[in-house]
């Protein structure tokens, strides 16, 4: 299995690259929805880079997780905030890492409880493979493979800068 490159890529640069991928396909009815917490930061960043008129929607998938029965409720649930009507909109769901695809499924389910979007695309910074559901990103800037016990997470420092972190779970 390939180990992540060291030093890890610059997440801020990746955000700009992701915006560049999205920009040519923007339409007036495009709106962003970021998944807490990493996806929400990226969506906010993309919103600035793409100079979108609306604030990005923020979604917490805790109430839609399929592992609720085993893991219980996440200790910190944040309110989902979608400041626009999703009916008929072209939505880009934004997440930091695409992995099993279960988070994306939960987010899609939640989105559809807000209404019926015209289309939903998926933008991620990183795709680490190992899918368990038929989900594929529409926009992605970094493909990598990692051992199962390795956790790839996006962090944000006090100045708002995004950066990657890799941790091993014993």
């Amino acid at each position: 299995m390939t180990l992540p490159p060291f030093p890890l890529p610059d997440a801020e640069a990746q955000c700009r690259a992701l915006a560049d991928l999205i920009r040519p396909r923007l339409t007036p009815d495009t709106a962003l929805v970021g998944i807490y917490s990493g996806g929400a930061w990226i969506a906010e960043r993309l919103s600035q880079l793409l100079q979108l008129p609306e604030e990005a929607g923020l979604i917490d998938i805790s109430f839609y997780r399929d592992d609720f029965a085993e893991k219980g409720l996440h200790p910190q649930v944040r309110p989902t905030q979608i400041p626009f009507d999703v009916n008929g909109r072209r939505l880009i769901l934004v997440d930091d890492v695409l992995y099993t695809g279960r988070t994306t499924r939960a987010a899609l389910n939640e989105l559809f409880d807000y209404g019926r979007p015209a289309a939903v695309e998926l933008a991620v910074l990183a795709d680490r493979g190992e899918r368990e559901l038929p989900v594929a990103p529409t926009y992605c800037v970094w493909n990598l493979e990692l051992p199962r016990q390795t956790c790839l997470t996006l962090g944000r420092d006090e100045t708002g800068l995004l950066s990657w972190r890799v941790e091993d779970h014993a």
Binding site: F63, R78, P79, T80, Q81, N87, E110, D113
Partner: peptide, 13 residues
Amino acid sequence: SFLGITDREVKKV
């Protein structure tokens, strides 16, 4: 977090 659910089209999780 649950408070917002009643404003949605589907008022259920």
